[in-house]
Amino acid sequence: MGMLFSLVAVIALAAIAFIGVKLGLLGLFGIILPYLAIIVFLAGFIMKVVKWGKSPVPFHIPTTCGQQKSLPWIKQNKLDNPSSTLGVIGRMALEILLFRSLFRNLKTDMKDGKVIYGSNKWLWLGSLAFHLSFFVVLVRHLRFFTEPVPGWVNMIDAVDGFMQMGVPHLLMTGVVLLAAGGYLFLRRVFNQQVRYISLAADYFPLFLIIGVALSGILMRYFIKVDIVKVKELTMGLATLNVSVPEGIGVIFFIHLFLISVLFAYFPFSKLMHLGGIFLSPTRNLVNNSREVRHVNPWNPEVHVHTYEEYEDEFRELMKEEGIPVEKE
């Protein structure tokens, strides 16, 4: 149900852009909606992160996947159970750049009536391929938003296209993005457990990103558009000196509209894991719960009646009864 709904929604979005451009609403799809999308994206992103920042972390809850720092002769697992900020930075970097916790993914199965666990790296591989290629694709698009195009953007393009297949040369990340997106979708379809918990909010962003990739690939290799005019439009957006040149193909506006929807939808969706991963208390806390007392930030100040105070209060009585005291 969620799957069908999301698919129809993305196709409807593409159709809206198509009809809109056919009706001549170029200014709306080329200028107004992209600007609105970027504003909603930035404002929504900031508000969401600030809201998270305002939530206290009542408990000290880093996940511990290895030996905690203990006695000197017991070897600590510094990355999986960090006891210093440096360790946490290492753990977070591996998590963010290499998705280390997905690498630990296990598959549970029944064999001869027994539960068995096996290593399962496909999700790790698929999502790493998906995210990294999406990132490279995003950075590559800076050639439409810079003039002159910086050398490093050209270099990424050259490395991405080093297979030199066809004209225009095939950019590998585009293909990988589509393939990995397809894998992530098929995983939701064929893995029963994952399918059971998948909602429209899972399918929709996936279909949207696949739609963006598909329209981009169509535009680059099959339904050509005048790239110089496209850059005239995008540079207009970047320099705040907007214009929509005549004669850009409708496929470009479909691509742009799907991206606008993706950006505007971003802060209100699961895609916020972009910011969320940095704020995961199970990952970014130092596991020093035995060394340092973690105080729940919303706790009121409690006056603690310490032993010293207790002894001060009852010292004379204690002495009379012959109870040992620390201070005479």
Binding site: L42, I46, V50, F145, T146, T239
Partner: peptide
């Protein structure tokens, strides 16, 4: 805000990266 310093630093870096095309081209005519 809890850990406000770190979170706001992170947000500033994020916004700086995300708006790169706008300030890199500020005032340019292409």
């Amino acid at each position: 805000m809890y850990n406000g310093g770190k979170i706001i630093t992170g947000l500033i870096i994020f916004v700086a990266l995300a708006t790169f095309p706008f300030y890199a081209n500020f005032g340019k005519t292409v």
